[in-house]
Computed example of a mutant assay.
Amino acid sequence: MADPERGPPEKPRPNNYSYNSNQYYVGTSEAQWTSWLIPMFVVANIVVFIVAMIINNCPKHNLGFDGKCVAKFLGRLSFQPLKENPLFGPSSRTNWELLNGSRLYIGIRLEQQFGFIRVGIIYLLSGFGGSILSALFLQSNNISVGASGALFGLLGAMLSELITNWSIYTNKAAALLTLVVIIAINLAVGILPRVGNFAHIGGFLTGFLLGFIFLLRPQFGWIESRNLPANARVKSKHKAYQYVLVVVASALLIAGLTTGLVLLFKGENLNKHCGWCHYLSCVPTSKWRCRN
């Protein structure tokens, strides 16, 4: 039967056929999709960033209270003083993270291996989950917008994909350590001003749970065993723990989104119930201020 993402089924390949999308993965006979959705997001983010920088026009609008524009040779594209925006971007009135576009590369591998439909669903729902948590921690009605929550959802999905498909990876510890370091660095960026880290956290948690649901891989040898005699085939496509993770993740996802929406429509502000949580979004230092 034809797959709506991949097209018509391919002809059977030799049993020794394999591909290796990264150095940690055990090859199988699954074909890769062509990645187009994530590259399209990359282009869109770059275009929006350039437009935001042109509108910002630091040389004209910067009053000099926080220092001089960075990279003034770029003209209208020069960055705000680092004391105001340490992320090399525009001012608060047109704020956009340059890192937004650079983070999008993380979804290319997922789209190549799982297709644009599943990755697109994770991207959209992660953005929704991140927006809910961000809205619940609003401070002084300062609304945060952007694609960061959806991007962190892809990071979370990469982590859960590694966990649920643990048995088909080779250098498991190296793969896990590499991914954890990448996640930690990206979350650490959230303590800088002008960054909605609650959207990052909410998107990451949403994507993490969605990864268990959408990114299951057959256990090693199942695809190749379809060409073997019935008595020699691997009986189950997935392992028991994968099914358990799907059920648990589905329950937590539904409960989390439902609770978040109920609190949001009730007008709850979670900052009133957590006096230190604002430090998860911005930590003031001598180099920058966490101002509204």
Rank of each mutant, 00 (worst) to 15 (best):
G67H: 04
P81K: 07
G196F: 03
G127K: 07
V248E: 09
F198N: 00
F128K: 06
Q219F: 02
C277Y: 00
I122H: 05
N227G: 14
D66Q: 08
N85Q: 06
G129A: 10
F128G: 02
P4T: 06
L177A: 14
A150H: 07
Y169D: 01
A175F: 12
M1D: 12
I182Q: 07
H273F: 09
G196C: 07
A240Y: 14
G67Q: 08
H238W: 15
G156R: 07
S126C: 03
G130R: 07
P8N: 07
G127M: 11
V43K: 10
T94E: 07
E161F: 06
F214Y: 14
L280G: 13
R103C: 08
F265T: 01
E111Y: 09
I168N: 10
W276L: 08
C58E: 05
P8F: 05
D3G: 04
E84K: 11
L245S: 13
W166M: 04
T94W: 13
G89N: 01
L210D: 04
V195E: 00
N271E: 00
N269H: 03
G190S: 09
R109L: 14
L63K: 15
N186A: 15
N20L: 02
C274L: 09
Y25W: 13
F265R: 00
G120H: 11
N16K: 11
G101D: 04
L179P: 06
N186D: 12
S140R: 10
Y24I: 02
F214K: 09
I122A: 02
A184M: 12
V234P: 06
L151R: 00
S29T: 13
A240Q: 14
P12G: 04
I38G: 00
P193K: 10
G221S: 04
G129M: 05
R6H: 12
V189P: 02
G89D: 02
A173D: 11
V180Q: 07
K172H: 13
N171Q: 14
Q80Y: 06
S281G: 14
W222G: 03
G115V: 04
N227W: 06
G7V: 08
V26Y: 05
N100G: 11
C69L: 01
S225M: 09
G153R: 07
T206K: 00
V247P: 07
F88R: 14
Y24D: 02
L216E: 04
V180M: 12
P39L: 02
V283F: 13
W288C: 09
S18D: 05
A71E: 02
G203Y: 01
